[in-house]
Design a protein around this nucleic acid. Structure first.
Length: 505
RNA sequence: GCCGUCGUAGCUCAGUUGGUUAGAGCGCCAGAUUGUGGCUCUGGAGGUCCUCCGUUCAAUUCGGAGCGACGGUACCA
């Protein structure tokens, strides 16, 4: 029997001996590390928003990161391109699984699976990462957090209105002011009616029309008109093929999209004139009227909830009301140019999403925040990020007595102050430097002298930071020992607390 | 996906008209400093010059392809 295992494989090329390759330390494309300030801000935000959801009786639901690909809907990967759009892999039983790309599809799967156990209407919230296997861009990543609230099992416009209400409440709870938040609302039924009246029936053509209308705020009437017609050439010379509508069709479509007025009542009147004569249009208008009545009764300012026929949103699964949360914030970039914030969240009614599980439509409506985008919006709005908790550093001057430092640190922690014991191996100077860089407000120094006397030396690092700016000679610096005291070990916690309070004053 | 710019130390960047050992500033580590953050001085570590293929006696440098970053545009459940 031939044993091939002892044969040498092809000898490596006789090049100069290479050093072992070092791996480039970098996160995968489109994935980012979130450092402490961002994590703190995002966690604070999610806490504030989900508290609102909880007040409205929504329950948390965490579903798994992976779903079977067919449960995710029409974006399931095919064999040729198993990772188109989603991150997918094949399980042992050859089933395709994919990471969720939003929280809505998993909710539909969960609700269908547990339908008989759920009290309907079922309302839940979810916060967590979602993954999209697309080319990343500025402010766009392949992993990002969304925070959702949905109501399944009600086709009542009151459910849509409540979703809009908590979207707004969530944003204000996150720290935005009443004037900064605006929920813009449209209804896909009105769009369908418009397309029907304009005699646009080809599905592909419909899609192009909707995409064009979605760009109204960015490209303006002229650009959208071009996209509805033959097409448009952008600044880079790239040509986008248009929907090839006739001028009359374009007129019909744009008459709808530009029917927005100052108040909801005026907009409803204008829309009545455009699509009121169409059956589906009339149905959509009735839903908006019901929402309007609730908003008005609850006494929110007029700008809080706006009917805007220019809103299109996601193109595939929305069936009725759609909405977007927009921020009225004036921001400038480094070059002083005004920055337009896109929507920080959106949602709508998706009555058909569960059909593939249940065989019949189940009404559902929901909303989703982009967590990271909202955090950067808050920062732009001047919301300060929570400062990290105060920190004390306990030095270890003699490795044999590390336990002593650990015991002291435990006493400080019990008083509620975060405490780090130096666990490196460098000398005192490096430890002080470390304490400084960790932004500790105080260092606890325990050497042989302190141990024998049952004392500790506490140095006020914050004070030293201020003094350092005025001292330039080494001698003075060495003599200064700013805010340094030696106290009995039993007074350590009290001294630290007073030092912190004093520094805050 | 398409167009453009770029890729040299941890960071910001010089430089090599193709030739011995590729540099600076900042940062990092250590010493001067006895048990003290900053300043100053001294020393040290750290590089497949993005990768591969080609041209060449010789490529970090020239050519091609790829990958990556950034910007614009498209798509975005």
């Amino acid at each position: 029997m031939a044993d091939t295992s002892t044969q040498t494989p092809n000898p490596p090329k006789q090049k100069k001996a290479k050093k072992p390759l070092k791996i480039k330390a970098r996160a995968p494309r489109g994935f980012v590390d979130k450092t402490a300030p961002t994590v703190r801000a995002e966690q604070g935000l999610i806490q504030a928003v989900t508290a609102i959801y909880g007040q409205h009786g929504f329950e948390p639901l965490e579903t798994s990161a992976f779903e079977y690909a067919d449960a995710l809907g029409k974006f399931l990967p095919d064999d040729d391109r198993p990772n188109a759009g989603v991150f997918a892999l094949q399980d042992d039983d050859e089933q395709w699984m994919a990471l969720r790309y939003d929280h809505t599809a998993p909710l539909a799967r969960y609700a269908a699976e547990n339908w008989q156990h759920l009290a309907k209407p079922y309302r839940r919230y979810a916060a967590g990462p979602v993954w999209r296997n697309e080319k990343p861009g500025p402010g766009r990543f392949r992993e990002f957090w969304q925070c959702d609230a949905d109501i399944v099992g009600s086709d009542n416009p009151a459910a849509d209105a409540e979703i809009c209400l908590i979207a707004r409440k969530g944003l204000t709870a996150a720290g935005l002011s009443d004037e900064q938040v605006s929920i813009k609302i449209n209804n896909r039924k009105l769009l369908n009616a418009t397309l029907d009246m304009a005699e646009v029936s080809d599905p592909t053509q419909k899609l192009i029309v909707l995409r064009a209308l979605d760009k109204l705020d960015r490209l303006g009437l002229e650009g959208v008109t071009a996209l509805l017609g033959d097409g448009r050439k952008d600044e880079s010379g790239d040509f986008t093929t248009g929907a090839k509508l006739t001028p009359k069709q374009i007129e019909t479509v744009l008459a709808f999209s530009t029917a927005g007025r100052e108040t909801r009542a005026d907009t409803l009147t204008a829309l009545e004139g455009v699509v009121g004569g169409h059956a589906e249009g009339a149905a959509g208008l009735a839903e908006l009227r019901a929402m309007d009545a609730l908003f008005t009764a609850l006494g929110h300012p007029p700008g809080a909830f706006v009917f805007d026929p220019g809103i299109v949103r996601g193109l595939e699964y929305y069936t009725g009301v759609v909405f977007e949360a927009e921020l009225n914030i004036q921001v400038q970039d480094e070059k002083g140019r005004p920055v337009q914030f896109g929507a920080v969240g959106g949602g709508g009614r998706y009555d058909d999403l569960m059909t593939r599980f249940t065989g019949q439509p189940v009404p559902a409506t929901g909303f989703s925040f982009g967590v990271s985008r909202l955090v950067s919006a808050l920062q732009a709005a001047g919301q300060t990020i929570e400062a990290p908790a105060p920190l004390v550093m306990v030095l270890v001057l003699d490795a044999e007595h590390t336990d002593h430092s650990f015991l002291l640190a435990e006493r400080v922690r019990q008083a509620g102050i975060s405490t780090e014991v130096y666990v490196g191996t460098s000398g005192m100077k490096a430890q002080m430097k470390h304490a400084d860089r960790r932004n500790a407000f105080a260092a606890v120094i325990v050497g042989e002298d302190e141990r024998q006397d049952s004392t500790v030396t506490i140095k006020n690092l914050e004070l030293g930071r201020q003094l350092a700016q005025r001292i330039d000679s080494r001698e003075k610096w060495a003599e200064e020992r700013p805010g340094q005291v030696t106290v009995p070990a039993d007074d350590m916690v009290k001294t630290l607390q007073e030092m912190w309070d004093g520094n805050q004053a």
